[in-house]
Design a protein around this nucleic acid. Structure first.
Lengths: 213, 213
DNA sequence: AAAGATATGGGTATTAATACCTACTTTCTG
DNA sequence: CAGAAAGTAGGTATTAATACCCATATCTTT
């Protein structure tokens, strides 16, 4: 029995190329192809694949959102992220969202096939390049692997987003309908948790972490 | 007479693929292939191509630096940036550095060929996707196309870099061996020129502009 | 050589941010 | 339900940043 695959990518060229490639393989079968997240979510209601090839950069739904929704609603579907984005935060977000594999579009056909088979078997598949990036990043700032993002609370995240949007504590207080003192307290908390010493540092960290932009 | 091409890319797979593809074409000939910028600069001393295919993300020299050096030293070489990076600042920097064409690695073989011929003829070649991105970006923040970056002076840039590195005015003054008041004056100048109202805004702008990181 | 931009620094004042307290209420979680 | 965490807010103080003003020396460029 062949591996049932659904592809989602907003580049028609890539979509066609992948269909041709995979359908020529004996143990794989593309059962559907969608061009955006909305079509995908609609289609999944009636037809589920074994493996979902998912592009990350798509309009409307981001790959991260889609991965989160799909792993919750369809825990049996294995997701393989297929993208030319090799941003470390993007990779981490996807993996944390439940994606099993991460393959760059620059990968060879053999690597892609191998990745599909691995993911179908329930194993994780990361390209050596991607692994290296994660390792480098982990070494480079070891204090923030996995520990940092969870510690930021919802409210703190809201405040952080408004700080990066260049609002003052006063303005943030108004927007969130709370006291300026409360906002200042959140600022202090953020400074401690993110390990920086001032507001400019918060902005840089937020961008580094992939929280915004 | 065929178009003489040199390829520079640090991915061996892509390097081989491109060589094969282009050498099968009748009007093109790969005369050299290098894996990094240092090799390229060394090789150019004895052998110059008509068209240079240049990857952007490479160790040691960045694509931007290479483009700048090469267009100055070898004004006859047409550079075609070949990359999977579709970051708008990267694109703009490369084009301003003298690159004639910009093709994503996700492009089809036909597009790549067309790009090489166009660039060889001295015309600019940008993929429709890339053009769209530039247009979108230009529409989105129209005040900063070309006008903003030049107005920042050397000193202001230094100060801006130190601000994004989370130094206070006091610390920046020490580092640059000038008065804190001078640093503050540069801050005010930066705030005006970049059209933001506080230090967090400066950091965000600097990153948006591609000045740092 | 003259004109304009750049870099330098000072005065003064106000606002924003940071540091360290405390305390209470709500919400989440085992 | 009990304890922990999060969200709320105030007191007080210091430091940093911003907003004006001004002046002068050094570049650059025509």
């Amino acid at each position: 029995m062949s591996i049932k695959i659904i592809i989602t990518d907003d580049h028609p060229l890539i979509l066609n190329g992948l269909c041709n490639l995979l359908n020529h393989s004996e143990d794989m079968q593309v059962i559907a192809a969608y061009r955006n997240g909305k079509q995908l979510l609609e289609g999944l209601k009636t037809l589920q694949p074994d493996v979902l090839l998912l592009d990350i950069q798509m309009p409307e739904y981001s790959g991260e959102e889609l991965a989160q929704i799909i792993t919750q609603q369809y825990p049996d579907i294995r997701i393989l992220a297929l993208t030319n984005q090799d941003d470390i935060n993007c990779i981490k977000n996807m993996l944390q969202a439940g994606v099993l594999g991460y393959v760059l579009k620059s990968a060879s056909e053999e690597v892609l096939m191998e990745a599909i088979r691995k993911v179908h078997a329930g194993s994780q598949f990361l390209e050596p390049e991607v692994k290296d990036r994660i390792i480098q990043h982990t070494i480079y700032n070891k204090q923030e692997q996995g520990a940092l993002k969870p510690v930021i609370t919802r409210r703190e995240k809201q405040v952080l987003e408004l700080i990066t949007a260049n609002y003052t504590s006063q303005e943030i207080a108004q927007k969130l309908c709370i006291s300026k003192r409360t906002v200042d307290n959140h600022r202090i908390g953020l400074l401690m948790k993110l390990g920086v010493k001032n507001a400019p540092g918060l902005v840089k960290k937020a961008i580094d972490m992939g929280l915004i932009k």
